[in-house]
Design a protein around this nucleic acid. Structure first.
Lengths: 131, 131
DNA sequence: CTTGACTCCGTACCAAGGTACGGGGTTTAG
DNA sequence: CTAAACCCCGTACCTTGGTACGGAGTCAAG
């Protein structure tokens, strides 16, 4: 069952205008239309929108999201190209994970200090991402 | 040895105007000045700028960065308040880590598929963050 | 067969996060 | 002592990622 743009937007929790904007940006493929010109979306598009929103939350720009979404092994993209981009992104992600883990551990120290009413250094979390 | 705004900016790899902007936003404390009114920065400020840039890269807004930087156990903030904010941030970070791990694993599958010249599903990474 | 909710499209506007400009004073190397 | 390189400040401008507006067509319920 196909979705109208309004139904899609509600179910993906984004604005209708955002859907149109993503289409213009090339993040969403142009969907088929009804005779009257209304967009008809496959329900999979909900997941695509969730992915975009989540990736943004993880610090990727829309250009990067586009790059991630276009990564696949298919005729039309050289394997080398896919490998290169995917590996680069993987390293970037590794670094994000490492830094988030450090921040998390700082926050845990802070929570612990709080529980025992110990005072901590001037700005404990700052050291998390140092160097 | 104190740094001028230009030296600080160069060493933290940001624009001079960005430093002034962060000061206006309250992300950097107002530094002491020379007799002529020139800002004099403690070298620690470099780390603070690195932290800000990195946290942005991890998907935090400047408002969130400000919140993170102000987290500490000291007289002036109630322990309960610090605990609450720190815990909330920790959960948020956990979720980010989880999703990044999924994306990473998708990318690894993709790289492996590429190596063996197998074709993968239409958009393999999309499934990474699915529900 | 009309009224309200939806959709179309183009264009204008908005918020966040900077970045540039420009007229002035300062510092420092030659 | 002067030219290059900094710094001051206020204000204007820019990019990214949306959001809103508004006139026109569509569709479903009553």
């Amino acid at each position: 069952m196909a979705l109208s743009i309004g139904q899609l937007a509600r179910r993906a929790d984004v604005n209708v205008e955002t859907v149109r904007y993503y289409e213009r940006r090339g993040l969403l493929p142009e969907p088929p239309r009804t005779a009257a010109g209304y967009r008809q979306y496959d329900p999979d598009t909900i997941a695509r929108l969730h992915f975009i929103k989540r990736a943004q939350d993880l610090g990727f720009t829309l250009n990067e999201v586009e790059e991630l979404l276009s990564l696949r092994v298919d005729p039309g993209t050289s394997c080398e190209e896919v490998r290169t981009t995917a590996s680069r992104k993987r390293r970037e992600i590794d670094r994000k994970i490492r830094d988030l883990r450090r921040m998390k551990s700082s926050l845990e120290d802070l929570i612990a200090a709080c529980d025992t009413r110990r005072s901590t250094s001037a700005c404990p979390i700052l050291e998390a991402l140092d160097t």
